[in-house]
Amino acid sequence: MREGHIRRPGEAVFSILMAAFSLFLLWKAIEIDGFSALSSSGALPMGAAATMVVSAVLIAMKTLKSEPDKTETFAVNILPRDVWTGVALIIAYAVLLVPLGFLPTSFLFLFVMTKALSGRSWFFCLWTSAVTLVSIYLVFRVVFAVLMPEGIVPEGQILAWFGKLLSGGK
């Protein structure tokens, strides 16, 4: 995907961020227990964080020294429209999941993403999103009894109602 000594757009910033992040984690790791004992809770975290700091600094130095790639731009090769749409939708999903609940959020997510990516007809997008969501719901909620956040759709009661219907109204 990339040549040895050419720096991709944004790579320098990323490598510096990683180095700073590692330093922060090392500080936090030392705070756990200090250097109290070989068997302390902080021993492995400190070792791992120190390794991260050393390698991240080496990576950052090497990255900063390398030539930037003139043929690539951040907006085309790292975060093109389709990808940032995806990332934005994922973030929106995380925010909306609890207040709206699993069913509406997931449906919106599938629908908007399919529509934005494919540009196909409304009907096609509605239909595929609905089929996908129903199958996921059936497998996870009905077969595996995973209780997702309910939100605004009282699916638990609807499901119980179906259950009673199937068991003959008892």
């Binding site: 009282p154 009661q157 499901l159 109602w161």
Partner: peptide, 19 residues
């Protein structure tokens, strides 16, 4: 109808799955 149904049913515990 659904609202009425669930409203009426909540008098009887349990009317949905318990976690």
């Amino acid at each position: 109808a659904l609202g009425v149904m669930t409203g009426a049913a909540s008098a009887q515990y349990p009317n949905k799955e318990i976690q």
